[in-house]
Design a binder for these strands. Structure first.
Lengths: 252, 252
DNA sequence: CGGCAGGTTGAGCGGATTCAAATACAGTGG
DNA sequence: CCACTGTATTTGAATCCGCTCAACCTGCCG
């Protein structure tokens, strides 16, 4: 059984058994357990360790002076929380658990080594960072030039692809237990309008979202209305382990 | 005279003379000259070289199927256009010149070496990438949770800080010759509304924007209305060369 | 002189917000 | 077993920020 980190990065490149061993070793040290709404890393703090989500769901967020919140990204198993920790003194935003979550604590020094390696691992870490940049840019497009309807559709479709990368989908369903307030904070809408829009997506037979589980009822149609083009995820190499039809790369 | 790349990165850390020499050498190879609206790197393309803006203004953008454009970042002297080129097959967005611009072409192989170095240079490159992430996150907050007025104020104040990092400000003025359409595409507004909002900022005595030159008339007040908090730029170390009162770090 | 790009202004519209209240639902304690 | 409580979802109505459509102005260049 591969760990989610390996699984994710192997969307980019294949690893040798030795490289896989390195990754396994890194995430099998200390780990933290977090309750919903707990900060995994607080805004303004610093840590000697890098955090990697192993189970559950987390989010990158920032509280604004007026009390409103902006969620900038959702973090699922295999995602790094704080790659900046090597070079920056403090976090310029917070990372909080959305559901119960566990995160591996990877010593900063070990991560530094990894980055400098000539093996595929260093490049895979760069790939992760570059795709994070791509996802953020896509979110800017969402907020700047897409309507609420398209924006939510886009987010849900993207999550489907990302969950499939780490094999946490069941057909076209995945567990994504966020509240509508979370959804609103992530899409830059009000909870009221997020509700109405989500409701329309349901009425249009595109998605079902009950009991914390998202089911994409008609992936090709959702992809179309979401104006989704997955190039920004750079799934150059389809993970060899996944059977045809269940690969993340098939969706982009 | 320091080059803009060195100047920018020395906001993060001080370099040795040898390290400065390395940077000088890297950007004094081949360079490209670009006319306004020319692509420096086209969406979907790939290059063996990395581009670094030396003079002029460029932008990171994406064209949408419906013909609208989203500008995701402005690139000024000292900014890297395509750090992704080492690991990704194709660009998932374009970079275009806004004004006449020159860009240094740095061989990808040389950049790779730099990244793996144990010197400060590798870390400074990481710092650059991490602050790029920070700037993008801030743009998401802009679009998601700030009004048009605050959003434009924020962008202009941020540009003031960034221009000051590379010593291209004249007091509180800087050359920023974008059209109001560019401004609209960057802030996710329509040109009409961008115009009205900019006009209001002028009427309120906060900024002047004529002849391609932005003048911040009252920096502390603009900072306040922009809800600007510059932590995300991580100007940990103020550039030693700049006199007190003219440092980028003073503004954050 | 006409053409064109960029900037400015007006009027009406609509998507999203705000304020407010009703409903559903799980947990908790009596 | 049922009130009680708090959180999440749903719906309605009025309002407003930003958009659309449209016209007009300005400076510049061929």
């Amino acid at each position: 059984m591969l760990n989610p980190w390996t699984m994710k990065m192997e969307q980019f490149t294949a690893f040798s058994d030795m490289e896989r061993g390195r990754l396994d070793e890194l995430i099998s040290g200390k780990s933290g357990h977090f309750a919903p709404k707990d900060d995994i890393i607080a805004d303004g703090s610093h840590s000697a360790n890098c955090h990697l989500v192993l189970t559950g769901l987390a989010c990158r967020y920032k509280m604004l002076p007026d009390g409103s919140r902006q969620i900038m990204a959702f973090l699922i198993p295999g995602d790094l929380c704080d790659a900046e920790i090597f070079v920056l003194k403090t976090m310029d935003h917070g990372v909080a658990a959305v559901t119960e979550a566990t995160a591996a604590l990877i010593p900063g020094a070990k991560m530094r080594e990894l980055l400098r390696e000539t093996s595929s691992l260093g490049e895979a870490l760069w790939w992760g960072t570059m795709t994070d940049l791509g996802v953020l840019r896509e979110r800017i497009i969402d907020h700047g030039r897409r309507t609420a309807y398209v924006r939510i559709a886009h987010l849900l479709y993207e999550m489907l692809v990302r969950y499939r990368m780490v094999e946490l989908t069941d057909g076209d369903s995945f567990r994504f237990p966020i509240t509508q307030t979370d959804l609103a904070d992530a899409t830059g809408l009000t909870p009221v309008h997020a509700n109405r829009t989500l409701r329309k997506l349901r009425a249009d037979g595109l998605v079902d979202f009950t009991g914390g589980v998202v089911t994409v009822l008609d992936p090709p149609r959702l992809k179309k209305v979401a104006q989704f083009n997955g190039e920004y995820l750079h799934l150059d190499r389809v993970h060899a382990g996944a059977p045809v039809g269940q690969r993340a790369g098939d969706l982009v």
